[in-house]
Structures are given as C-alpha cells and as structure tokens.
Design a protein around this nucleic acid. Structure first.
Length: 220
DNA sequence: CCCCAGGCCGCGC
DNA sequence: GCGCGGCATGGG
C-alpha cells in the first residue's frame, strides 16, 4: 500500500527532525581496543541484558563487567557463574541472564560467527527470541532486519491505528514499506524508542507537544 | 502503594 | 497455537 509507505517514511523523517540522530548501538570502542575484544560482543551482551529492563540498569551491569575486564565472550565464558551473577545483578533477572549469557557467548564464539549466522540459528539459542535476534542482526551483524519492540508496537498502534499483535507480521510491514537502508533501519528503531519514552508513553502519553501529533490517528 | 523498563521460556490447555 | 506466570532490579 503506497499510502502507508509514504506515511511511514514521513514518520521517520519527523522523528529524526525532532530528536536528531540517535547513533545506536552505543559501545565502548576504547575498551575493546585495550582488551582485544570485538565491539560486536558488547552489542550481543547488551541485547540480552536489556530484555524487559531499562537501559540505565543495563549500563550498570555493563560497567561492572568492564570493571572486571569481562565484557567479552571470552570473559563471560571463563568467569565463574556466581561471579557473573553478582556483576549482572543491577540488570535484573540476573540469575537467568548469567546462565543465558554464558550459553550465548559460547555458541557465538568466535565472534566471526556473526557474519554468517541466520536468524533461525540465533533464535535456537536459549535466551534469544525474535526481538533480541533482530537487534543482534541489525546492530551487530549489519543486516537489514527491522526490530520490533513494545515501544514500536505502541507508537504504530497509535499513529497508524494498526493493531498487529503478531511480531512477524509487523516486522514484515516495516520492511516492505521502507527503503533497504541499514542506517535508516537502525535510526528508525532507535527514534521510535526515544519517542515512546519521551511522549508516547504507555500511561499518560503527552500528546500536547508531541512532534508527530499532526499525523497521529489517535488524535483525529 | 502502584506501574514500568530496549523479552523470553516453559508450561498447561 | 495460544495465554499465562516467573524471572528481579531500580526509578517514577
């Protein structure tokens, strides 16, 4: 549908205009230079840790790992489980995440595996579901895989009146209606999250002052 | 006190 | 093939 295609692009451009480039995914390049690890490893770790968890809490856990020089697949694999749990504590679900991180780090080593791995293969790893797989593909592997999260669903539901509950269906809808541009995929997802946090909040959305209120179905 | 956060898995039906 | 509870910390 041509109409939703142009409206979707318009939404992207408006959000970009309003919030500027987000430059996701944030990684500490310098840390990885010093430790001989790959920044992509940090993206994978962050993707696991941020599951249903605020990024603020994830940052604390990442800092803890860095402090022990363990923010890498090798570090996570070699660390005792108890030690890992302790460091991951601020990110919540820390026992689950410690176990799953070990599994993920081992399965994805060496990190060059990311260059050929498929979405299905990623999702077979315990702890990696649809969204985490897509985030890894998009931000670590550089593939054109649009990421859907709770924020994305909420914004799209309000702006377009689209009630696509099914993850795969909504993902396809984005991918069919966007130009195949890696930076656009990355920025758009980040912008949707930023927008959902600032204005399009779950409870008490601040529609007054919303930068995309003009095109929002909810306000018609 | 409540709800929410950059989800996923295992279970019962 | 679904809906649901459990997982857990920190902030508003």
């Amino acid at each position: 549908m041509r109409n939703s295609r142009s409206k979707l692009l318009k939404l992207y451009e408006s959000l970009l205009e309003a919030y500027g480039r987000q430059n996701w995914w944030p990684v500490d390049e310098e840390y990885h230079r010093r430790h001989g690890s790959d920044p992509r490893e940090e993206i994978v770790v962050g993707a696991i840790l941020t599951q249903n968890t605020s990024w603020k809490n994830v940052e604390r856990a990442l800092e803890n790992l860095k402090g022990e020089g363990l923010l890498s697949f090798r570090g996570i694999t070699s660390a005792p489980l108890q030690k890992l749990e302790e460091l991951l504590r601020p990110s919540g679900y820390y026992r689950q995440k410690a176990r799953r991180l070990k599994e993920v780090a081992q399965t994805l080593s060496p990190v060059s595996r990311l260059e050929k791995i498929s979405r299905e293969e990623l999702m077979r790893i315990k702890g990696i579901g649809q969204e985490t797989a897509d985030a890894i593909l998009l931000y670590a592997c550089g593939r054109l895989s649009f990421v859907i999260d709770a924020y994305t669903k909420r914004v799209v539901e309000r702006v377009f009146g689209l009630k696509k509950d099914a993850y795969e269906e909504l993902k396809r809808w984005f991918e069919e209606n966007l130009p195949k541009d890696l930076e656009l995929y990355r920025e758009f997802h980040a912008l949707l999250d930023e927008h959902a946090k600032r204005y399009c909040k779950k409870r008490d959305p601040e529609c007054a002052g919303c930068p995309v209120a003009q095109m929002c179905l909810k306000l018609e």
